[in-house]
Design a protein around this nucleic acid. Structure first.
Lengths: 262, 262
DNA sequence: GCGATCAGCGGCACG
DNA sequence: CGTGCCGTTGATCGC
């Protein structure tokens, strides 16, 4: 496709706030929070009406270059500086600009040497994704019956706010000890343990009493478990099933109990 | 476009390992690590030859539903179960399946009631992104002149592996004390502090001596700084510039000139 | 808007 | 493979 034609199509569609899809051979340059260069190759460019700008290669899930909502897209034809007689442009440069929260400018240049297609659409879509099996949903389920984890466990509050971050669930055990429960919907690693440790430490100081900490996850890495035990925290294997459209906790196995409560 | 035609086009292109772009009105259902539903609306579907499957709405950067490389995409026509006389299909169901590392199945159904366009391309692209201003690059620069942070600081090693995670830089100060340096290319929050604290704790126990910990970032949040100080750790403001195609730590150049005078 | 955290995080590097 | 962690993380939610 002629670059001039591509430019016209694209500009009209951008004006009309359509979703634009451009396929062609291009170089990409980015500067902003970081900087990048991508040599010439065939790519897919998607520009959404909210400013979203996505450059995709033919593999991988993630866009190779991108810019989020709020970006302004414009395009310019580029001519051969060494041959100004030639009226045919050398490239179509599609640019997305955006001002970062800190005031700096972020920019992508997508320099098309060939354009295979420009296709634009007005998409009607007011629907929102309904997602099931999130951490929040599991938390809600757990709150309904903390006895699953341990007999005598009474819920105090959910998403209790601490000054630094928040524990998923705060509870009280049969011995009236406060229990902080950190919930993970997937395998827990070192970060999950440090997170729980931080909450427990913070709470202990604030309440001036010993606080139990329970990490609740479907699985835990070896290192994480070691560190957990070293910190005097506990792990409970959380088995759950995702059934569309709801999640169910399958049953909770008690893995370890510290002596700290005695 | 007729659904039958869309199916033929898509199947042929998938067979030929092309990049496929489908635009149409669809419902989306996902089940796998979690589960989701998305009611009828106009969307953009991209299927890459490596199996990548992306459903985009008309806003936001992230795909609303997706599946990574390795997925298998297939499509089927769906007929009205209440009117089997009718030969015209009701929907074109495009499905991506994938086996998760843990052996479970992950699946997206994209049920198109209308297809506005099916466009497929064979893209040639062997280029890789050159990215500048990454944490690793900053680390390399810092290693060249740790004096920037503190006089007398000598580099010991980079990316020193601990059993749990790794410190970006390990150094020795003028008093022969070991210093663990954690580098962040952007604002450091509580997570960065807990990360550094974990490294320092681990190192202290292993080396059986007091270890200094320095968090190096362009900015730090208030809470993070408070916690840092409470933990006896230090913060060094790292100012750097991204210049395409290289990053420079502000002040480093000057320092090098100073050194070259001797 | 800042800040903290989740995410079906993805992707990478290393053991 | 798992494990850990960076990322131009993005997106969400609370303050």
């Amino acid at each position: 496709m002629e670059l001039e034609e591509a430019k016209k199509l694209l500009e009209k569609a951008l004006e009309e706030k359509q979703l634009c899809v451009v396929v062609g051979r291009c170089k990409v340059a980015y500067i902003g929070r970081a900087a990048s260069k991508l040599s010439e190759g065939d790519r897919l460019l998607v520009v959404k009406h909210d400013g979203t700008f996505l450059v995709h290669q033919s593999t991988k899930m993630a866009a190779i270059n991108y810019q989020g909502p709020g970006s302004k897209t414009s395009c310019e034809l580029e001519h051969d500086a060494n041959n100004l007689q030639e009226k045919k442009p050398v490239a179509l440069v599609v640019t997305a600009k955006r001002t970062l929260p800190n005031g700096a400018l972020e920019k992508i240049d997508c320099r098309f040497y060939k354009v295979y297609a420009v296709n634009c659409y007005s998409l009607q879509d007011d629907e929102k994704l309904q997602l099931f099996g999130t951490e929040r949903q599991l938390s809600d389920l757990l709150m309904q019956d903390l006895q699953l984890i341990e007999k005598g466990l009474i819920p105090l509050r959910q998403e209790s706010d601490l000054r630094k971050g928040s524990v998923d669930i705060l509870a009280e055990d049969a011995q009236k000890k406060i229990v902080a429960i950190e919930l993970k919907r997937r395998e827990a690693g070192l970060d999950a343990v440090t997170q729980l440790a931080r909450y427990v430490k913070e709470l202990s100081q604030r309440k001036n009493q010993t606080i139990r900490g329970i990490l609740c996850a479907p699985h835990i890495t070896e290192n994480a478990l070691k560190m957990l035990e070293k910190e005097g925290l506990e792990y409970y294997k959380l088995d759950y099933e995702i059934a569309n459209p709801s999640a169910k906790i399958r049953g909770l196995e008690k893995k370890q109990q510290t002596l700290s409560q005695f």
